[in-house]
Simulated scan of single mutants.
Amino acid sequence: MIIGSLQVFSVCSNSVVMDHDEGTRIGAGRRRGRGAVSNEASRFDLGREVESDGWDIPEDRGLLRTEVREERPRSIINYVRSPDLPFDRSINPYRGCEHGCIYCFARPTHAYLGLSPGLDFETRLVARPDAPKVLTRELRAKGYRAAPIAIGTNTDPYQPLERERGIMRACLEVLEAASHPVAIVTKGAGIERDLDILGRMAARGLVRVGISVTTLDPGLARKMEPRVPSPSRRMAAITRLSEAGVPVRLMASPMIPALTDPELEAILEAGRDAGARSASWIMLRLPREVAPLFREWLEEHVPGQAARVMARVREMHGGKDYDARWGRRMRGEGPYAKLIAQRFDLAVRRLGLDAAQPPLTTGLFRPPSLPGDQMALF
Rank of each mutant, 00 (worst) to 15 (best):
R193Q: 10
G304C: 05
R43Q: 09
R124H: 11
D53R: 14
E51P: 08
F105P: 09
V290W: 06
E192A: 15
V8S: 12
R30E: 12
A131F: 07
A170K: 15
E122S: 10
G363M: 06
F87R: 01
L139M: 04
D194M: 09
E59T: 14
R169P: 06
K187Q: 09
E289C: 06
G4E: 11
V50H: 14
Y94R: 03
L364C: 04
N92E: 04
R240W: 07
R343K: 15
S13M: 05
R288W: 14
R145A: 09
R234F: 07
A183D: 11
R366S: 11
A258E: 14
G271W: 13
A356V: 11
L195F: 06
L259V: 12
P359C: 00
S15C: 13
G210K: 06
V126C: 11
V182L: 00
A291V: 06
D321P: 12
T66Q: 10
G23I: 09
T239W: 03
E59K: 15
T109L: 00
S82A: 10
A306W: 03
G152S: 06
L259P: 03
Q357S: 15
I238V: 15
P371L: 01
A376V: 11
V80Y: 08
R145W: 05
T214E: 03
R128G: 05
Y158T: 02
V290A: 08
L161G: 00
R65C: 12
M18I: 15
V16W: 08
S42Q: 07
L119N: 07
D88Y: 06
A311H: 01
Q305R: 15
L64I: 14
G205L: 07
P83E: 13
A341V: 11
R285Q: 14
N78M: 10
R74D: 13
C97R: 01
A178Y: 00
C104R: 00
D60R: 13
I167G: 02
I102P: 01
H301T: 12
I77H: 09
D21T: 13
D261Y: 08
V185G: 01
R61D: 02
G188V: 04
T153P: 03
M251D: 10
L284F: 01
F344H: 12
M18R: 14
L284V: 08
R277P: 03
V209L: 04
T109D: 03
H317Q: 01
A307D: 15
D373R: 06
R89T: 07
G245A: 09
R222V: 07
H99I: 07
R32M: 11
T260Q: 03
R272D: 01
A252G: 03
A274P: 08
M224P: 02
L284R: 10
L351E: 07
P157H: 03
L360R: 00
P108N: 01
L161N: 05
N14L: 08
D196Y: 06
S232I: 08
F344W: 13
K223D: 06
G54D: 02
